[in-house]
């Protein structure tokens, strides 16, 4: 066991984190194709191409008037779009159409029409879905914030019926941009589609992401999705306890980090535990008797909520909210004062 730990730590030191290690292994195995296709500098045309001789392109119709926000398309783009409109009008699904969509995507990856038509073409042609994914990978890495690429991937993987290789690919993407919304949303879809909720690796990977940056709210959201959000019913007391302990450790590393505080409240709410469960913990970071030693405005916020629920602690709630409004989180003074106003309102009995 000691030897195993030694080797593991040694590897981790070299590769900084298990993610780097994974990435390095993937490079070796050539699972992830990272080398982007070299862009052809020569423009590609269809009008003098024998293979396209039977197609009469449909040119852009500007209806005589010069429209707003008009783009002076290159001849190459303009012509390719003309051929696309023509094949779409004919409902043609063929190898050459696939090439055409690739060509247009290389010039404009945000062109949803082309992506949708490509997604229709693939099953019509019976193209191996794995080939499509292999083609997609470098494109996705080049255009991290693109909606279409992710939806296309979703469509293909859904049809393929296997998530194999996807978690690894996602890790590679998140190394470039660890909070990429599309990537995380795609991962949540993947977990649901292939029921990965109980796969230990999924939670371990998420814990690694949180370990790497405890302030990564996307990672916390994914954890919540795995543990509670994506499942039916309320979490067991045992699970809630585990999550509370996990989150406490994370908060101790950086108490002024709102993600785990929100997570803690989220777990408490989902498990229908009283907020006072975490009162002592919050007091470690903000004790109203020592107003000069507040280590987390979020602890004060939570305490204000806990006190507000306790019939006899209104004065404490007010004190916590005053500290927030005047000293520890003054930019939100209006909000804290609004919360103070709520203290006077008759309580709704739950």
């Amino acid at each position: 066991m000691a030897a195993y730990n030694f080797i593991r730590n040694w590897l981790l030191t070299i590769f900084h984190s298990s993610l780097h290690l994974l990435r390095a292994i993937l490079y070796r195995l050539n699972i992830v194709r990272l080398i982007p296709t070299k862009k052809n500098s020569m423009p590609k045309y269809y009008h003098d191409d024998e293979a396209w001789a039977d197609i009469e392109p449909l040119p852009q119709d500007d209806g005589g008037l010069h429209p707003l926000a008009a783009i002076a398309y290159t001849d190459e783009y303009s012509e390719a779009m003309g051929y696309l409109r023509a094949v779409m009008a004919k409902n043609e699904f063929s190898e050459r159409v696939l090439g055409l969509t690739e060509h247009i995507i290389s010039m404009n990856p945000a062109h949803y029409t082309v992506w949708l038509y490509r997604a229709k073409t693939i099953p019509e042609l019976g193209i191996p879905l794995k080939d499509e994914i292999a083609w997609l990978n470098p494109t996705a890495l080049k255009h991290l914030k693109n909606y279409q690429i992710w939806h296309h991937r979703h469509t293909i993987i859904d049809a393929l019926g296997s998530p194999e290789g996807e978690p690894e690919f996602i890790s590679t993407m998140l190394e470039q941009d660890s909070k990429n919304y599309h990537v995380w949303s795609y991962r949540q879809w993947l977990v649901k589609r292939f029921d990965l909720f109980n796969k230990p690796e999924e939670l371990e990977w998420t814990a690694d992401m949180i370990e790497t940056d405890v302030r990564n709210n996307s990672a916390w959201n994914h954890r919540y999705y795995l543990v509670v959000g994506g499942r039916d019913g309320k979490p067991s007391q045992e699970l809630a306890k585990r999550e509370i302990e996990y989150t406490k450790t994370a908060i101790r590393k950086a108490p002024q980090n709102q993600s785990p505080w929100n997570y803690l409240s989220g777990i408490i709410r989902a498990a229908q535990l009283p907020k006072s469960t975490i009162k002592d913990f919050a007091l470690e970071f903000a004790d109203l008797d020592r107003p000069d030693e507040v280590y987390s405005s979020h602890a004060l916020d939570l305490l204000a909520e806990i006190y507000a629920e306790e019939e006899s602690s209104r004065a404490e709630a007010e004190k916590a909210l005053n500290l927030l409004a005047t000293r520890y989180d003054p930019i939100r003074a209006n909000y804290w004062n609004f919360r103070k106003g709520l203290l006077d309102q008759p309580k709704l009995t739950a």
Binding site: L68, A69, A70, I71, Y77, N108, A110, H111
Partner: peptide
């Protein structure tokens, strides 16, 4: 809302937004 150069082809699907 005026004319765009060829490099703006990337926003060909977003012209209604631009307007």
């Amino acid at each position: 809302i005026g004319d765009y150069p060829p490099q703006a082809a990337m926003m060909d699907a977003s012209r209604p937004w631009i307007v």
